[in-house]
Design a protein around this nucleic acid. Structure first.
Lengths: 220, 220, 220, 220
DNA sequence: AATGAATGAGCGTTCATTCAT
DNA sequence: TATGAATGAACGCTCATTCAT
């Protein structure tokens, strides 16, 4: 029901076969990006991975840029969808919801899909404005989810504070990608990190008081 | 006197002029990497930036790979050198030393050199073992510095715990690179992040007790 | 009634709709050729202009070459038809008829259709024998019209001389295409050229005597 | 002495070998253009003709456009140089000079270099502004040479009239390219055309009076 | 009659690398 | 040391053509 307009920027592909091809192409592209990095993310490699010829690839995506757009949008959107699912499923307690989100995010580092893809995304966004914007939108949405939970846990905090805390928490988790993710040196510390993160974040939220913000009160 | 071995993979360069050239080449390469990204880090661009011709560049570095190796080594070593300098300069109090290191690391995000370079490094390490190893060595050294300070602040913690805390702290800071660094959307929140980070980390170190570790006591 | 054989190389197109499609395709092709040049005269562009898909285009013309053939034949035939119409309409006086033809040919340079198309035709005929033959046939017919008028004006001239004069006159007019045609630098001199041409040609016809021909009398 | 700065837009090519290569490349390009038309004027064909690899070709000309620029400029400049040489060599009599120029221009049609190249040039100029400008400059210079001779033959004519006559004469001759040039159907009529042209043009110049111009006197 | 899908060849261009001087 | 010259491989992309539906 809800997946009808995927690959919106791709060519028409009105028929089923075309739709399937587009999915296959995007899957292949992600595979290449994860497996070989964006330097090797060439049309030839993608076509090879997808089992088609380059000519056919360009039939669906006239430019590499448009393919990349679709690819990034597809991947990033799945993360948001999943996040909202987690929140919705976590019941009434905001504390439980918060822990569920944090654990989901960290647990997600167990997949190569995540640990390989995101550093590529960050590097890409370094030199491509569109990628940077897309990434920023995704993380902004993620922070909004976190902010809502923070506010529910500690309603005394003002908007500025919840935003700052959400940003700090998001940073802390994203930073693990390079170290504790799948295939990384400290791979096995993932559970420990989860524990430390939850404890630390919960304390941070609970013990931050409205008067803590340096911004609101330049001189104490 | 002690840094003679630099550019070990480069050509002989026994004479001063050659050494200077190598420095110029590496500087040029870094400039290009930061300013234009890894994708445009071509021999042509590096030579142009260095004011020499490609032919001459290949005289010093027979392959692009060897140039990259030297470049990474040079950059990463400077971070370590700086870190040790910071620690040494921070006096007797371990708390002061810890805060100084944290603040240095976060403050460093103010430079494009850092915010542009590290995501590239992470992406590179994704698919290149040598880069991954080099990076891991650097971060391991960084964590050792942090661990030493943690142990001085809270001597009760065991080796496992200090290691985990250092890793968590390192992740938290590195994760800021994509968000609060120079040229990023949340660039202006750097001071706030610094404050939250210091407070949060200090509490984490102080309030962690030896019995917290789930690893040591599989069954409670 | 008499023009049935058009599009002889195209597919059957026995039905009216098919005939209309072929006309639309050829019109579209001419439009593209004139507006964007031979380089951009691609099946994609033609199909786009005709409002159909490439796949359908290839149903009517199995190869691009066959489409081009039909296109050339259609265009060139229209010029001949028009020329004969002009001659027929110019009444009894051969002088009037001659001037009418000359003026028609020069006036025709006012349309982009002419000034853009013919240089392409000449370049094409440079390396394509069929095009060269088609073009030669068209110009031969044009010269025959002119020859007939010349002979009527000055009956003393022999066949060789009328042929030579017709050729010279035809060259003189065709040569204007690159300079005084629509969109050309000397576009505004078209009327002046018309006047000079008529005066010069009329004098040439009137004052040429049968003894002028060097060919007939190698030694005087 | 005078050929030092040829190929000004090409790469440095400071050494003899490079200079020779550039000449070879341009010669090869002309060969391909003449022999196969601008559609087949590809870098691969040019390189093949020049006996080098495409990679080397792009070392001298970074873009195809720059190569074409140099090619056109080189060819067109040779025509101008030759024209001026002809005029200078034709002695005192303006009539002799004029005839010499006309005969040179028509005689030139005996070379495939001319009959093949110019239609390509005209077609090129149809869709490329730079080519159009270059071509216009060349023909403007040619007309200036003709105008000067016309004025010497009939000093009574005003500037407007000499310009118009020069244009008409130039058109008449250029128009022969498609018909009487080397390899064309009416190839053998070249001498006849020469004779008709000279006679016709001389009469046109001699018998045009200042009062002929319709432009100066809107109503007679 | 019409379209979507697929292919293979070729295009201009970039690049790391090799080599003679 | 330093440069110009040359190469081969790969890149993104365009195109005419074929084919199943």
């Amino acid at each position: 029901m809800q997946k009808k307009k995927q690959a919106s920027r791709a060519r028409t592909a009105t028929y089923e076969k075309g739709q399937a091809r587009i999915e296959a192409i995007l899957d292949a592209a992600l595979e290449v990006l994860i497996g070989q990095g964006y330097k090797k993310l060439t049309l030839r490699q993608i076509a090879l991975q997808a089992g088609i010829k380059v000519g056919n690839l360009t039939y669906y995506y006239r430019t590499k840029e448009s393919l990349l757009k679709d690819l990034l949008e597809k991947i990033l959107s799945t993360y948001l969808v999943e996040m909202e699912r987690i929140v919705a499923a976590s019941g009434d307690s905001p504390e439980d919801g918060f822990v569920a989100v944090i654990e989901y995010l960290i647990e997600d580092l167990n997949t190569q899909r995540t640990t390989k893809f995101f550093p590529e995304l960050w590097a890409l966004s370094n030199h491509d404005d569109y990628t940077a914007e897309l990434m920023e939108n995704m993380y902004a949405a993620e922070r909004q989810v976190i902010e809502k939970l923070i506010r529910a846990i500690n309603p005394e905090l003002n908007k500025q504070q919840t935003g700052d805390l959400a940003l700090f928490i998001s940073c802390s988790i994203e930073g693990m990608t390079m170290f504790v993710g799948a295939g990384k040196k400290q791979e096995d510390t993932l559970q420990t990190m989860k524990r430390i993160a939850c404890k630390s974040f919960m304390h941070l939220i609970a013990k931050t008081s409205p008067s803590d913000s340096k911004r609101n009160q330049k001189s104490p």
